[in-house]
Every structure is written in C-alpha cells, then in structure tokens.
Design a binder for these strands. Structure first.
Length: 833
RNA sequence: GCCCGAAUGGCGGAACUGGUAGACGCAAGGGACUUAAAAUCCCUCGGAGUUCAUCUCUAUGCGAGUUCAAUUCUCGCUUCGGGCACCA
C-alpha cells in the first residue's frame, strides 16, 4: 500500500491548476446585471522586491472572500496592481546606479509571479501600475480640475521636512514627530508647496464616519480624532491704544468674564508688532527664536515647560472693558484656531498653571453646583459644568446655556460669532523627489501660475536623469525638464519640479480598476458606467496602519471625484477589515531582528495551499498572527490526510456517485451524514460576513476526523459509499476557498467533469442537522452534577421528572427541600435547594 | 494625561442570545509499526486531591455585585497593546 499510494505532490498539483487558471482567464470578470456584483479588494502592494508574510495574509483573506462569493453566485471583481511610485525605488537607483523605473518594473515582474504562485484569483487583465503614464496622466488631469475648482492651491508655509528622505511630508505622514517611512524625526521648514483642500470636506468626512457601520469602530474613532472638530466661538478683542484687533477661538465662551490675560503664539504677528520699538523688543525676539528652536528639538511625546513673556500690550474684554495683558506663550500654536487664546485660569488647567507661574489673577466665574470657588485657594482649574457668577447679565445661567447666550450677544454686538474649528489641516502633496507624478503646473513671469493644457498631458517623467545623493530633486536640476514655454504667452516659463505625494495614486486606484484594461478607459480616466456598476468596494482589506493615512485620503478623493462628476458614490469602501500583523517570536518580522519567514521558501517546501491554510487558521484575521513553523507542518499534515484518504478510497468514492443516499440513514452513516451537514452550516456562517476563517477550518478538521475515524480499518461497520462521497465532496468544496489547488484536483479525481471553481457552494439540509439525542445537564444549586441523554424536544415536565429521579442528583439534594427548578429545553435542568 | 481594545491550559486559539469552560491545531508524555529512524496510527494531556470513578474541589488578570446560573452583564482596580497628546 505504502509503495503505490500516491504522494501529495503539491508542486505538480499547484502548477497544473495555476497554469490552467491563468491560461483560461478563469477570473476575468465583466458586468453581469443578472447577478449581484461583489467587489473585494486588498490594499495593493508597493513593489519592494518580494512579497512578505503580511502580503500573504492580506491577499489570502481577500482571495478566500472572493472565491467564497463566487461560489455563492456573485459576480466578483477581484483586481490587483502596484502602488509603484515612491522613495525606495529612487534610493535603490542611487545605491545601485540603476533607474527607478527599471528597478520598479523588475520588482513588479517578480512579485507578480510570487502572487500567482499563491493561487490568488485575480483578474489580471485589470492589473495597473501607478507609475505608468497611462495611469498618472489622469491624476494630473484631476489635479488641474481641482486647481480650477479652488481645491488645489499653493502656499508658503511651515512644512515637515524629513532630511533622510529629502522631502516634505504631510501631517498625516508624521507620526508623533517621526517620518512614517524612515522613522527619523522631522524638522519644520518654511517652503512653497501645493495643498489640497481636504478641510473643505472636514464636516462631510466626519459625518460620513457615522454612515460606515462596516468599519471597525477603532478606525472610525481615529479618523474622528484626526479631524478633531471643536464647536465654540470666535471673539474679537480690541487692542488697547491701537487700531488692530485680536481674534481668538474658544470652546468656552461662558468663561469670558473670567479671562484675566491673553496668550498668543510666539509667531503671531501681533507679538512682533506690540513689541516693536519698545525696550522689550530684544527680549521678545529672543523668546520667539528660543521657543521655535526648542520646539524643533522636542523629542516626540515630550512637552516643553510652560513658558511665556509679557508683550507690553493690552487688549480689552469686549464684555467688561477690562484691560488684559497680552502674553506670548510657547504652548499656543499658530496653526490652530487663530493662534491666540483668551486665558481663563480658573477654568483651564494650562492657563491656571501659567497664571500661577507669572502671578496673574485667577477669577472663577463658573461654580460647580452647590459650591463656591475661590481663586486664591483654588488648587486646580475647574473645567467641568456649573452655574455662572460675576458674569454680568449672564450670572445665574447654567454653563451650557451661557455658552449660547454669550455667543449670541457677541454676534449681536458685532464682535463675535459661533465658530467650528477642525484640527485637520490641508493635505500637503508636494514632494521634492523624482519618482512620483509630476505636478502639471507652469510658472510664467508674465502670466503667473498656469496649468498644463490638457492636450499636453501627460507631463511625463524624463528618463535621462542622474541620481545622486546631492539632496536636490533630479527634476529641479534638469533644465530640459524645467524649461518650457508658457501656454498663454508662449514666452519662456518654468515647470513645477516637485512631484505628488504617492498617496495621491492610492486615493483612486480602486475606481480605476473598475475599467482598467477596457478600451473605454484608454482614452479616459474612468468609464463612468463601469465605475457606477462596481463601486463602492464591498469589502476592503488592509493593515490598520492606514487607518488615517490612505483611508482618509481615499475617502476625501472619492468625494472630490464625485463633485467633479466622475463618481456617484459618497464613500469608497462599505466594509473594511483591518488585518493584524504577522509576528514571529512576539515581534514584528524584520531583518534586524532576524525573525523573517520567507513565504517563497515555505511555498517551495509545503505548497501554497498549506501556507494559505495556516495563515487563515492560526488566528482570527483582525488579530496579530504569531507565525509558527510547527503549526505549518500541522496544516500540511491535514491536507495530506485528505489527499491520502481520497486516493486510498478513490474507487469506492467514485462509486458513491452511482447511487442516491440510502432511504433511511442510521448508525455510522447517520453520524457522518449529520456531521457533514452541520459542517456545511457552520462554515457557511463563519465565511458569510463574519470572516471567522479559523473556526471554519476547525469545523472542516472535525469533519475530516469523523470521516477518518468511521472509515478506520478496525471500524466494525463502515459508512455507505454514497454517504462517504457526500462527506468528501463537502470537505473539498468547503476548503476550496482556502486551499484551491488541492481541492480543484481532488474534485476532478473523484470524477467530476465540471471544474470546482464554477460550482456553487454546498447547501445543507436543516433536517440532517438534528441530533437523535441531546445531552441535558443537571445542576444542583448551579453546579454540574449529572447528565441525561434524551430525545430533543423532551418536555420540561419530563426533564424535571428525570432529573429528580437521577441517583446522583438525589445524593446531592439529600434531605433538603427543593425550592425551585429551572428548565432550559434541550440544555439543562437546575435544581435550587 | 485623555480615548479605544485586550487579558482563557506549556503555546495559537474555541465557547450561539448568560446555560457542560478549554472545540480545532501546535507542543509534550506514553504506546503500536520498524533491525533502526523518519513518516503514519492509537492513547493521555488546566491544577490539586482521591476510594482511580459516569469522583470531589478548584480554575477564564484581580476584587466586588446582579442572577437559579457569569469567560459572557454592571462597578472598581491591575497589566499589556494601540491611537491622540500643549488643539484653546
């Protein structure tokens, strides 16, 4: 037997099916109005060179969902492509004296083969690479249209400069002061840059969070916090002895009678203005420079000591006329609100500490219910609710009511209005690097800033470029690229030499997939009918590290494309699954830790099906997955067992197709038949929306265990061939999404001429699920004391009787009086004494 | 500091709507087969006790509470992970 038994030759099986699927374009998809569309998308990879375990996990999850949905009859769009612009290509070019394009396309070719070896069911005809001019030309067009709508603009501002990357970063790409890519600290720098007005969409992006029940709450919370909406009022203070005024933003207008000074950001223009030509000027200039320098040197997570300086100027409280000294304070940010804060030390902890430090008055005006605060003895600011006092006509009002009343009064008198402020700032998209989409702008001394005429698009990246570690963008050093003619006056002009943030490409690729490769899309950015048909993405899968970055940009971009008339949807991704990291020995896999597992080697050793199966089995998808090589062996053993069983029993299993199920199923047949249907039911439930792949696989393992046990050579009566065959068919079909090659092969071998991948998901018979007997547990005072084997549906009365008659139970009740009996049908009897 | 999330055997993880805690897998121990090993198959496997059984006690981070009954609900803590952090 051992000698003739067919080995589980995964290499041959996988090659056979991979070739078949690719050659016949099994996964090519076109719209089909007779079927439900389902768009499943895994975040596309950066072509870094080789796939890693994170990719394997991400793409296997997507593939299992895609294959499952197809078997359920949906018309599934499942595309793949390359997020191909980015710094590593340029850095590699500098290091290896190659060209970023060459490096990138070679990586793509290699990684495509790696993905295909995993048996991922993509429609490869829709493959795209964002570094193709055929892709980025449309991005340039979108940019021009945004510019024309006022959604793209250029300004000089303080930006985040990353020195190793030699470029500017958007706020979202700076995590706690650190560059998201190279993990070094960023420094502020004054620069010209292009920005997209994401702030115009702040309110809609925030409100949209409530319309996304299919997203993890955690991601929505992070987005809400990032947008950071604050409701309050803007109020104008006159500056004493001057024409100028000072605008502040506050969320606590109710405390305005308690304002005792004013805090300004050091960079606030009024600070310089007030101190100009006074004896304080030098001191204040030093302060401004010192705080700016200190902020630059701050380590992430570290807060500077509260520090301030009196500017010499005063402003007037518009309600009381009181003169408030104006301070410059290091904790006030110029970028948020108006860069000026009215300081109410009694009701703001930071102002409180500042007031104590500089001996400024503390005047409580909101007293907690039933309590009276005293500014002299106060140990901390009271930031909570209360009743107003010493606040003129507003005294006696509750704080919330007072906020409204004081804001209205300010508005009525013309020195204030309600105001909503967001923490979110506009998206800076200029990058001082080569390997990105050129920004299609021309600067002309005569005509000013011009967009590149659409017939001249795309603005292609020039190829003859030298890559040096010089620090300057290769584009800005290349006269043949920068020098151009003005589209309006035909005079000499200069091109913009910055390129776009690579998050621009990933902000709309999911829309491009809906028509990529079709003739309608070669001369258009999007085929609007196709986009309307396929979008939104029904299921999106990716790492949680993009909770704010990519996922916020993509939501914004979708709304912009909608408003430009390309899309009809408000949100790009209906359901989002954020998969956990793949870790080894408790830590993220990394070269420096030496705990990297190479998927390619594993596939060579065990086959793609085993690698896929284990990565789905080892942990629920949203949790971190601890990679365990012995666990992989276990997955391999499991698939081998199925393979061996089918081959060993091939003849009887084939014969099982010749007959119907026996009219009455009993004994071992009944056990197996029931288990088969229970497994179909369980796996269906686990794959349908819940994505409990790990328990789905466990369930199939149980069925395999049952099947093998009942067919054990020592078993007295083996199951009927037809019952056996049905179990085998269920195992193959249920496992197909996870281990497609082996299942396709076995399906064919047991005699099906129609391939499994065109077949539908198995149905279960509710009748077959029913147990003949069920175990009812008997508790005495809540403790398990005995068990009863009864027919399901046994009446409460009967169960009570049986329970009380049980010898073991009698012993535990003894002489005690039974006070109460709780019966849960088919489950338990609890006797309370 | 604030906001989320998690905590179950040696390990990864199960447990429907409160109703047999530990499914499934890994590791470990014992056995069969073998000249031997690998592979494969069978048995045991939270802890403690014991009369070795269809036994008892104990056990889901800790402490309370609700309930006939709590891994599950409530409150308070501890630890770990993640996010935000001078945001006015």
């Amino acid at each position: 037997m051992n000698t003739v038994q067919a080995r589980y030759d995964f290499t041959a099986i996988e090659e056979k099916w991979r070739t078949h699927w690719l050659a016949t374009k099994t996964w090519k998809v076109t719209p089909d109005l007779t079927r439900k569309k389902y768009y499943v998308l895994s975040m596309f990879p950066y072509p870094s060179g080789r796939i890693h375990m994170g990719h394997v996990r991400n793409y296997t999850i997507g593939d299992v969902i895609a294959r499952y949905r197809r078997m359920r009859g949906d018309n599934v769009l499942h595309p793949m492509g390359w997020d191909a612009f980015g710094l590593p290509a340029e850095n590699a070019a500098i290091k290896h004296h190659t060209h970023p394009a060459q490096w990138t396309y070679e990586n793509i070719d290699y990684m495509r083969i790696q993905l295909q070896r995993l048996g991922l069911s993509y429609d490869w005809d829709r493959e795209l690479a964002t570094c193709d001019a055929s892709y980025y030309r449309w991005e340039q067009l979108f940019f021009i249209q945004m510019y024309e709508k006022g959604l793209a603009y250029r300004k000089m501002t303080t930006v985040n400069w990353c020195d190793p990357c030699q470029t500017v970063l958007a706020n979202e790409q700076v995590i706690a002061g650190i560059c998201w890519r190279c993990e070094t600290q960023v420094t502020p720098r004054q620069m010209q840059g292009w920005f997209l007005k994401i702030t115009d969409y702040a309110e809609e992006l925030l409100a949209g969070c409530d319309q996304l029940p299919g997203w993890p709450e955690k991601v929505l919370t992070m987005q809400r916090n990032w947008i950071g909406k604050s409701i309050g009022a803007e109020i104008e203070f006159r500056v004493a002895g001057r024409q100028s005024t000072l605008r502040i933003f506050t969320t606590r207008p109710d405390t305005i009678f308690g304002a005792t000074f004013m805090s300004l950001a050091p960079e606030h223009p009024l600070v310089t203005e007030l101190s100009k030509n006074t004896d304080r000027e030098a001191e204040i200039t030093t302060f401004i420079q010192r705080t700016a320098a200190a902020r630059r040197q701050l380590k992430p997570g570290e807060e500077a000591r509260i520090e301030g300086i009196f500017t010499g100027g005063f402003c007037l409280n518009p309600f009381t006329g009181a003169e408030l000294p104006i301070y410059a304070a290091n904790f006030v940010l110029m970028e948020y609100g108006t860069g000026a804060v009215m300081a109410v030390p009694a009701h703001d902890q930071r102002d409180f500490e500042f007031a104590r430090q500089y001996n400024l008055p503390i005047t409580p005006v909101v007293h907690p219910y039933g309590e009276k605060l005293d500014g002299k003895t106060l140990s901390a600011a009271h930031e909570g609710p209360g009743i107003l006092a010493d606040s003129g006509e507003f005294s006696g009002l509750d704080w919330k009511a007072a906020q409204k009343a004081i804001t209205s009064k300010a508005a009525q008198k013309g020195f204030g209005q309600p105001k909503v402020t967001y923490r979110l700032r506009d998206w800076g998209i200029s990058r001082q690097r080569y390997w990105g989409t050129p920004i299609p702008i021309i600067y002309c001394d005569q005509c000013g800033t011009q967009t590149v005429p659409s017939e001249q698009l795309p603005v292609r990246l020039p190829t003859g470029v030298k890559f040096k570690k010089s620090g300057r963008s290769p584009l800005s050093a290349l006269a043949s690229f920068g020098d151009t003619t003005c589209p309006t006056c035909r005079g000499p002009a200069q091109r913009e030499t910055d390129t776009m943030d690579t998050f621009m490409e990933s902000s709309w690729y999911f829309a491009r997939y809906t028509c990529q490769g079709s003739p309608g899309c070669s001369e258009a950015s999007l085929d609007q009918q196709e986009a309307a048909h396929w979008l939104p993405v029904d299921q999106y899968i990716g790492g949680v590290e993009h909770a704010i970055l990519h996922l916020l940009y993509a939501r914004f971009y979708t709304k912009v494309l909608r408003d430009l008339g390309y899309l009809t949807i408000d949100e790009p991704f209906i359901n989002l699954l954020t998969q956990g990291m793949v870790i080894k020995d408790g830590a993220k896999m990394s070269k420096s830790k030496g705990n990297v597992v190479d998927p390619h080697e594993l596939i060579n050793k065990y086959g793609a099906d085993t690698v896929r199966l284990f990565s789905m089995f080892a942990a629920p998808p949203e949790r971190d997955l601890e990679w365990n090589n012995q666990g992989v062996e276990g997955a391999f053993r499991f698939l081998s067992r199925i393979h061996h069983f089918v081959h060993e029993q091939l003849t009887p299993i084939r014969h099982g197709a010749d007959h119907d199920l026996p009219a009455t199923i009993s004994g071992a047949n009944r056990t197996l038949h029931r288990k088969t249907h229970q497994t179909i039911s369980k796996v269906t439930k686990d794959l349908d929306g819940a994505f409990h792949f790990n328990t789905a696989i466990s369930a199939v393992m149980e069925l395999v265990n049952t099947l093998l046990a009942l067919n054990n050579p020592e078993a007295e009566r083996k199951p009927d061939p037809t019952v056996n065959r049905r179990a085998v068919e269920a195992i193959i079909a249920l496992l197909f999404p996870m281990a497609p090659h082996l299942c396709a092969e076995l399906w064919e071998e047991i005699g099906h001429d129609q391939p499994l991948d065109t077949l539908s998901w198995p149905e279960y018979d509710p009748e077959a699920l029913k147990e003949d007997e069920t175990t009812v547990i008997i508790q005495v005072k809540g403790k398990l004391r005995s068990r009863l084997q009864v027919a399901p549906g046994t009446s409460d009365k009967e169960l009570q009787k049986l329970a009380l008659a049980d010898d073991r139970v009698k012993g535990f009740i003894g002489a005690a009086q039974v006070r109460k009996i709780i019966v849960v049908p088919d489950k338990l009897v609890n006797i309370v004494i």
